[in-house]
Amino acid sequence: MNQIPIGGLSAVAEAEKPTRRAQAKRRTREKIVGAAKSLFAERGYESATIRDIAKAAGMSTGAVFASFTDKSDLFTEIAEAEQAELYQTMQLAAAGLSGHAAITAMLDAARERHAGELALVRAVMSALWTPGLAERARRRLERRPVTTLIAAAAREALPTAEAVQAAFVAELIWDGYLATLRRAALGGLTADAVKARIDAGARTILAGSQPG
């Protein structure tokens, strides 16, 4: 019981002590990702070119292609890292809570996180609609792991709901959240107003999902 396999331990040790070459490779990737993130946020997916990204990162176009197969690969890596961080933020916010309270806390945490990076959010949203984005990249971005978090809380809020129904409600809550976020991105709403709208939307959807 609770034994840590030896192989697992040595794998951890190896991960903690990367070779110099691996370290350099990782630093290069981080530099590219950092430059790409601000360029995508500034210009959008279509207009930010690999050449511009390489220039901003202070390296050659070839060096970028040594780390990423193409622009959609680079973009997807950034968007996926954002999704993973958003997932953790929401999971943390819901710790110790359940049902509707957990959903409210998760949406509020998402709102706070997204408020600081609306430009990147817009770039991701726009890219999802752009036919230029590779199919493989789109499939990776289309998965919305955060809705599984919301679905778990929705099942607690709606005890008689089937898993399929909870997933449907969670998608709808997240769609409603994104609709409000889009409005926030266009400007003209205070943070409190955005929060109130997100809460009211989720409340309406949960109330409408109660049986009977």
Binding site: G44, S47, A119, R122, M125, S126, W129, R182
Partner: peptide, 12 residues
């Protein structure tokens, strides 16, 4: 229409 939606997110 899809191109129109994508452009709708274009803050420039």
């Amino acid at each position: 229409f899809l191109a129109y939606v994508a452009a709708g997110f274009d803050w420039r």
